[in-house]
């Protein structure tokens, strides 16, 4: 984080444009984080109203995505940014699309919550949802934090966490599939839980993607599509 001085350009307008992009990104991150938290609550407590609130926020998130993209396009066209400025713009445009997808996934979870509220609770799976949900929530918080502070180490930690989430997801799937085989009447309701777990696992992936963009932004190295060990090796070079 030694060289991320985005407020020091000779042009104050350029400073303001970058500042505005970062602020909007953080606002969008905050909204999406809240969506994930609310969607989990709605699912765990069969709270239809809260689920509706999550769905209503989608529109706001989409608009922010478009606003940030527009701001980035304008900076690219007018300022021809280079070096860290360029990496910031690229990282932000990629991060917003991941954030928007996280918003979509939480909307899915909210819808599952609404269905379970109508059809009755699933006999199994809430422990897993709570556990993986908390995990993913922390990842999202950390990855946004890493972006705000240009902290590549923290971003790397998020990538490592994603591996754990993937393991937990697979083991939860195994136990839920076994349960459905034993009790076929529960399949519809358990499936709702499975879809939600799937959505959570995807959110973890998106959080990891954002973390990878942070590493690109800070270190200038492309660390997508490689394992955590390989990322570490690449960063040491």
């Amino acid at each position: 984080m030694d060289r991320m001085h985005f407020g020091e350009h000779s042009s104050t307008q350029f400073n303001e444009a970058l500042e505005s992009i970062r602020n909007n990104l953080m606002e969008m991150g905050g909204l999406v984080e809240k969506q994930v938290v609310d969607a989990l609550q709605a699912l765990l407590h069969a709270d239809s109203d809260l689920a509706q609130k999550v769905l209503d926020t989608e529109d706001k998130v989409d608009k922010l995505e478009m606003l940030i993209d527009e701001e980035c396009t304008r900076v690219l066209a007018l300022r021809q940014p280079a070096a860290s400025d360029l990496r910031l713009i690229i990282a932000v445009t990629k991060a917003v699309s991941d954030l928007e997808r996280i918003g979509d996934e939480s909307a899915k979870i909210a819808r599952m919550g609404q269905q379970l509220a109508e059809e009755g609770e699933s006999p199994r799976g809430y422990v897993e949802v709570r556990h993986i949900g908390n995990h993913v929530r922390n990842m999202l918080r950390d990855t946004l934090d890493a972006f705000a502070r240009f902290d590549a180490k923290k971003a790397l930690a998020v990538a490592a966490e994603d591996n754990e989430v993937d393991l937990e997801y697979r083991s939860a799937m195994r136990s839920l599939v076994t349960f459905m085989m034993e009790d076929p009447r529960s399949i519809t309701r358990v499936l709702n839980i499975i879809w939600s777990l799937r959505a959570l696992e995807r959110i973890g992936d998106h959080a990891r993607n954002i973390g990878e963009q942070v590493i690109y932004l800070v270190e200038g190295k492309d660390v997508r599509h490689i394992t955590v060990d390989e990322i570490e090796a690449k960063l040491k070079k």
Partner: peptide, 8 residues
């Protein structure tokens, strides 16, 4: 270099 390239 960074400072010059980015217009600081």
């Amino acid at each position: 270099t960074e400072a010059y390239i980015t217009g600081r």
